[in-house]
Design a protein around this nucleic acid. Sequence first.
DNA 1: CTCTGAACATACCGCGTAGTATGTGCCGCG
DNA 2: CGCGGCACATACTACGCGGTATGTTCAGAG
Lengths: 209, 209
Amino acid sequence: MKPAVRRQPDRTRQMLLECAFEEILRSGFRGASLDAILESSGVTKGALYHHFGSKTALGYAVVDEVVRPWVEDAWRPVLDADDVVDAALKLCDELQRQRTEQALEYGCPFNNLINEMSPIDEGFRTRLQHILVDWHQGIIEGIRRGQRNGSVRDDLDPEAAAAFVISSVEGAVGLAKAQQSPQFYEAAVRGLHAYLESLRPPQRRRSRK
Amino acid sequence: MKPAVRRQPDRTRQMLLECAFEEILRSGFRGASLDAILESSGVTKGALYHHFGSKTALGYAVVDEVVRPWVEDAWRPVLDADDVVDAALKLCDELQRQRTEQALEYGCPFNNLINEMSPIDEGFRTRLQHILVDWHQGIIEGIRRGQRNGSVRDDLDPEAAAAFVISSVEGAVGLAKAQQSPQFYEAAVRGLHAYLESLRPPQRRRSRK
DNA sequence: CTCTGAACATACCGCGTAGTATGTGCCGCG
DNA sequence: CGCGGCACATACTACGCGGTATGTTCAGAG
């Protein structure tokens, strides 16, 4: 009657991380109920405290092993593309298309955690900071490469532009939570789209195509 | 021995609102402890529940009577100025200067509440939504006026640009909480500054001065 | 002067929570 | 074959929290 295979510590741990991620996305970290995580994951409290020493430790693990890859997978394609603006616009359209989902209701897990936990817990703050710094640095590198291969204007401060773009994206996703219609969010993405277009060098009509 | 004047219901109520605002800024709404608010305001629990039916009612009142004016006072000057871009840049520098304060640690009360409460409480969501819609509409009007009097480019989607700017500001303030240095925040504001400059019409060198 | 009710003050309650103490089964090693 | 310890499972505890019940005081109407 019991599950065919038990004693799968890796799988149990992974289940906990994923279900905790979902619950934290819905309720925030402090609002996340361990009982809810246990119920959705089908794990008992004993198992949880065997794998993680505390709720905080579980939260840290979620940041390190779920949130971080989740964020990096999002912006990594931009860095790999040869035309940064094209790649960014593509990602921008992606944001527009995925808007019907939970994203508009629950926002971005990364942004949520920064807002909730950074001021009150150093462990969260430093972890989230590193994710942000890496992201920022990645975009800066992308812009520099774009400037080198002529797909981005030369007279652009890469550090400022990168921070500005990241801020606008996270800000838009955050503010969208206050709306029940995607109107504001769509407008913000349109604004971002136009801004990204303006980053192309003026002399050249198009880089190619 | 007792305070010279007691029984000042208006003052008591105001004290509660202000102290609740501070506590909510520090700990979020759910994390805000009524006991902490009572201690900092010097009011007892009986008095609190005489003025407000519940913690939620207190939170709504804080949004309506503290957060809303706080937000509107910030962007109202932009609408009143004749050159929108100048006014926006001024506000932008203001953001840069006030960065040393609590702003970087605790963020924007408005943005914080949206992120925390919108997904889980309709009462908060609708109130915050109205503040955001008014803000958005205000900036749109400002841009339109700028386009009419020649201080803003004609080929600009006011709705998109307004949402984009608001998003970037709130996003920057939110993300700044993850940093202990103002580096990222300053970069984002610099990016915003450059973007605002780009909104000026190209043909005219300067509107005046 | 009296008396009513607004404006508090104090003591208490119930609930959900993170965390713990202790028990159990099973796999692998010797 | 025995047995130690990993991977769980269950029952319980402590505590902070929002909320309430009840008592007290004072200002003002009549």
